[in-house]
């Protein structure tokens, strides 16, 4: 039995549409799991059901082998960090962090020691007596993190904790949160709609869409072998293309003809959806390679994305900046990719 298990969780708000629709997950002790999905995909609702703020319409949640469905939030021993920090404005930083310990009747001296330790871990020891509102957003979020960790929760839930921070601070905090996770080893569930954040931080990613789980996998596996067109398009940049498998490992794009692809042996014949990463495509030397018409050029500094068409099929290509100098709109390029860059998503309807 896994440490935290969600069994067939459903949540509806009285309508026909499920905010969370039959979600089952098994999370191991000490894991860092990210719930990734667009807004309204059910990831936050699932998190709030784990925290106990929302009651599932049906289904069960078990923590360490014990059903926690009837347990109220304050008895679950689960730490929660909110996007807007939710610090107590009338308490100092130290009193905020000490709050869960005071609620548990921990002796004063021990509270002081544990608060000092956690503030040291989040590197805010010098701010113990400060009012929360005097701190920057990043510092406030670290206080919230310390407060959610000081009572040694069984699970730490983070609800888009970095959503209110600017980009640089966000990357710094990602590293910080990972470091703290390594140091304390607490089972962590992290909710975000930012796929880069999910890729860089997680042991495993759960992709949510429309209230359902699309795929659960390690970041790289998710990136290389998306199970659904949604995952292929949502995690990283991708070309999701309609193709046909005529049999014998030959795959054809409509209007283009056969393309280089290494298909798995169990690949069904007929219509398919394939994924081809923009960065796996490169410029070809020969003149018999497929022709790509450049329709737009987007410069990212370190790389360049070419938007265009392979025959009639819209396609995106990402090239290193050095390889893409002197390209112009309207130009016809010869392109190639390694056959195993083509990933078969599933049978197209």
């Amino acid at each position: 039995m896994s440490y935290l298990s969600l069994q067939n969780l459903r949540k509806d708000y009285g309508g026909k549409i499920f905010a969370v629709d039959d979600v089952s997950l098994a999370i191991e002790k000490g894991e860092f799991v990210t719930f990734l999905g667009p807004s309204g995909s059910g990831k936050t609702t699932t998190l709030m059901m784990i925290a106990g703020f929302e009651q599932p319409t049906s289904g069960h949640i078990a923590l360490a082998g014990r059903a926690i469905d009837p347990v109220p939030p304050h008895k679950r021993n689960i730490g929660v960090v909110f996007q807007n920090y939710a610090l107590f404005p009338h308490m100092s930083v130290a009193r905020n962090v000490g709050f869960p310990l005071r609620m548990r009747g921990v002796p004063k001296a021990e509270i002081a020691a544990r608060v000092a330790r956690l503030l040291a871990i989040v590197e805010l020891g010098a701010f113990a007596d400060a009012e929360p509102r005097r701190l920057s957003g990043g510092q406030q979020q670290r206080v919230a993190l310390a407060r959610a960790l000081v009572f040694e929760p069984d699970v730490l839930l983070l609800d888009e904790p970095l959503g209110a921070l600017d980009k640089n601070l966000r990357e710094q905090m990602q590293i910080e949160i990972r470091r703290i996770h390594r140091e304390l080893g607490v089972t962590t569930i992290y909710v975000t709609h930012d796929q880069t954040e999910a890729m860089t931080m997680s042991d495993r990613i759960v992709v949510f869409n429309g209230g359902k789980v699309e795929q659960v996998d390690a970041p790289l596996a998710l990136y290389r072998r998306p199970n659904t067109p949604f995952v292929a398009g949502f995690v990283g940049d991708n070309n999701v293309l309609d193709a046909t498998h005529a049999g014998g490992g030959r795959i054809e794009l409509p209007g283009v003809g056969p393309i280089a692809a290494a298909l798995p042996s169990d690949c069904p014949t007929g219509p398919l959806k394939i994924a081809l990463r923009p960065e796996s495509i490169r410029l070809a030397a020969g003149s018999d390679a497929p022709a790509f018409t450049v329709q737009g050029i987007v410069n990212y500094g370190d790389s360049v994305v070419l938007v265009g068409a392979l025959g009639t099929v819209p396609l995106k290509i990402r090239l290193p900046a050095v390889a893409a100098s002197n390209l112009t709109v309207g130009q016809i390029l010869r392109i190639e990719w390694s056959p195993d860059a083509v990933h078969v998503i599933g049978t197209a309807r």
Partner: peptide
């Protein structure tokens, strides 16, 4: 959220 935070903190 402050009240939710208080509940989650015990």
């Amino acid at each position: 959220n402050i009240m939710k935070a208080a509940a989650s903190l015990g």
